[in-house]
């Protein structure tokens, strides 16, 4: 896929949340497909989970500030899960390696650089409340060398049963020390039903967050 095509596709679907709220690992044999959009980036992802402990797949991310795209192979690993009677907590590690491609100029003279990233996340949820924290360090040559982190809190206005439409009201805070606006806050709504999850919100900078995911 051409880089510009990927960027267009990502933008068209609109999405970001690099850890995808820990839904990037499913059940054994499961596949998850995600698109993400925030003020910072657009992403398109597809992962296969051989077991419930890890998944492997493709991540394509267009980063707006640097005007470049990373195509990478990503590993998501559930390092630890705490299964409690009424709650669940998780600690995930994620890393990816690939190539970064500049979007400026013609195809023949676009800048290219090796790229890699690593990070982790921790979350806790019961059927009413949700909290999470995640971070990521990215290196992509001249394009990027940065650290990002974010945290979320959420509450479900009602508790649904299996198969119902589930709704969460959430608040996400993002911290990017080197960004023009280092801290952004995004209120958002998460809804999921069946195999689909959708999140939508608008940050205090006016940027739209949209995230869609489906599991097979």
């Amino acid at each position: 896929m051409r880089i510009s095509s990927l960027s267009f596709l990502c933008a068209a679907f609109g999405l970001y949340a690099w850890a995808a709220e820990a839904r990037d690992i499913t059940y054994p044999g499961g596949i998850s497909v995600m698109t993400m959009n925030t003020g910072d980036m657009n992403g398109l992802y597809g992962f296969y989970s051989p077991t419930a402990r890890y998944s492997l797949g493709y991540a394509g991310e267009y980063w707006r500030d640097g005007d470049y795209t990373i195509h990478s192979v990503r590993l998501n690993y559930l390092a630890k899960r705490w299964n409690n009677p009424d709650s669940q907590a998780n600690f995930y590690l994620r890393s990816g390696v690939g190539m970064a491609y500049g979007e400026e100029g013609e195809d023949s003279d676009r800048e290219i650089s090796p790229a890699a990233y690593i990070g982790g996340s921790i979350d806790w949820e019961d059927r009413r409340f949700y909290v999470s924290y995640e971070n990521r360090y990215t290196y992509a040559g001249d394009f990027d060398d940065s650290f990002k982190q974010s945290a979320r809190v959420g509450v479900a206005p009602y508790v649904g049963e299996f198969g119902d439409l589930h709704t969460w009201l959430m608040l996400q805070a993002d911290h990017e020390p080197e960004a023009e606006h280092p801290v952004t806050v995004t209120p958002l709504v998460r809804m999921f039903k069946g195999a689909h999850l959708v999140e939508a919100g608008v940050s205090n900078q006016g940027d739209v967050l949209f995230h869609w995911m489906v599991q097979f």
Binding site: P85, Q88, G163, H166
Partner: peptide
Amino acid sequence: NVNGLVCDFCARAVEKVFGG
């Protein structure tokens, strides 16, 4: 009876694994 079963996606995972 299972611990950690708190969300719809958790239930879907169980359904898929046992359903197979």
